[in-house]
């Protein structure tokens, strides 16, 4: 199997690209967590998804980046917006009326982040070497997913699970006449 090198467009200033994408991801994630209106949170989530897709591309995972855009932005986010539009009828559905709870949540999140940062800072990743050459990953991913010795069984299980979940979702979401 030959794997072609993809043209590397980010040799100049990979750090700048990383910092820009990271800033966009963190700001929009916090906006998604704290925006007073759910629709605004959903659109902030879209920005976060795009930033994460850019980070995947920066890491050389081109197929995962495109899947991220297609599945998350094209699928899950549209589902979320439909959920917001179909259920946001009352003021109570906005969800952030209690400042005490928001304060508690922000404190808990900050404490967890400090713990994680402390753990990351104190760990040397001995097995993490120089990054491998960027490759065109699509062919390798396709072969790995259809390899009986590799990921074929998890792949098929995931597809069956997805089918079952979608059938179940369609069954659950149908409108009942009674009550």
């Amino acid at each position: 199997m030959t794997v072609a090198n993809i043209p590397d467009l980010t040799e100049v200033m990979p750090e700048l690209i990383f910092h820009a994408l990271a800033a966009l991801a963190i700001v929009s994630a916090l906006a998604a967590a704290l925006a007073p209106r759910i629709v605004h949170a959903a659109f902030a989530l879209m920005a976060a998804f795009f930033a994460v897709a850019g980070l995947y591309a920066l890491l050389g995972a081109d197929f995962v980046a495109f899947s991220q855009v297609i599945v998350y932005v094209g699928g899950i986010l549209v589902l979320l917006v439909f959920g917001v539009l179909l259920t946001a009828r009352t003021e109570a559905s906005l969800g952030l009326e209690r400042p005490v709870r928001r304060l508690f949540a922000v404190v808990a999140g900050s404490v967890l982040f400090m713990l994680l940062a402390f753990a990351i800072h104190g760990t040397t990743f001995a097995a993490a070497g120089a990054p491998t050459e960027p490759l065109a990953t699509t062919e390798a991913i396709g072969r790995a997913f259809l390899d009986p010795e590799g990921m074929l069984v998890p792949f098929e299980l995931a597809s069956v699970m997805l089918l079952a979940a979608l059938v179940g979702a369609a069954y659950l979401a149908r409108r009942r006449r009674s009550s």
């Binding site: 922000v106 999140g109 990351i120």
Partner: peptide, 10 residues
């Protein structure tokens, strides 16, 4: 970690 904590806050 930052993204995870933002999700936890939400």
């Amino acid at each position: 970690a930052a993204l995870f904590c933002a999700g936890l806050i939400a």
